[in-house]
Design a protein around this nucleic acid. Structure first.
Length: 199
DNA sequence: TTTCGGATTCACT
DNA sequence: GTGAATCCGAAAT
């Protein structure tokens, strides 16, 4: 469970409030779907490392590798709640007008944290790494929002309806509203897996 | 070697 | 709500 964990880069830090899962070889929306390439090789490595990729000719996005070696599973970090180093974030993201603009998007949070291509493959659990994943004691949310993943092209077919987007309910830093899956549930209790269709 | 399209953001209407 | 910016990786030629 990555929600409520803290991502730290130098003096800058933020709490993870929104993620998406990408499963790998059997997930057509995953970069790893067509096998290992030079670009996605980090996903095939050990868990706990950072997979950074470049997209749309101008943006970086950061994933946490989750599967064992050879199993290309990763979780895209889509939004953070800014915790520390707010000033540095604003310097890096002059377009941000309010605090919730700083990290509310996969490419935005990379900007705010200064994450670029050179960060691809770093060990998030190594205290000497430029980016680290920390647990500050706050437990995982009791309930989480569940919805479909964002920005997938039509070509991935059914995978665009898989409810693999997870977020902290009500957090002001979410990158966009969570869209419920037709016939499925939007709010899920992490305790009993009881669900609600509210909202 | 060329072509295609993207796990997006921002400025503008 | 709409469209532009912008360039790299992968597949096709």
């Amino acid at each position: 469970m990555l929600l409520n964990k803290v991502l730290v880069s130098g003096q800058v830090s933020g709490r993870i409030v929104e993620v998406e899962a990408y499963r790998g070889l059997d997930d057509p929306a995953s970069h790893a779907f067509r096998g290992q390439t030079k670009r996605n090789r980090t996903m095939f490595g050990p868990a706990g490392h950072l997979y950074v990729y470049f997209t749309y000719g101008m943006h970086y996005c950061a994933n946490v590798v989750c599967g064992h070696e050879g199993e290309p599973q990763a979780v895209l970090v889509r939004a953070l709640a800014p915790l520390g180093g707010l000033e540095e974030m604003r310097v890096r993201r002059p377009a941000a007008r309010v605090e919730s603009d700083l990290c509310s998007g996969p490419a935005r949070l990379c900007q705010a944290l200064g994450i670029g291509r050179s960060y691809d493959g770093v060990d998030l659990l190594d205290l000497t790494s430029p980016v680290q994943l920390c647990d500050d004691g706050l437990s995982s949310p009791k309930e989480i929002l569940v919805g479909t993943r964002v920005g997938l092209s039509q070509r991935v077919g059914e995978a665009s309806t898989w409810p693999w987007r997870f977020a902290v309910p009500g957090d002001p830093n979410l990158s966009r509203p969570v869209v419920a899956v037709e016939g499925q549930f939007r709010l899920m209790s992490t305790e009993v897996r009881l669900m609600s269709t509210e909202g």
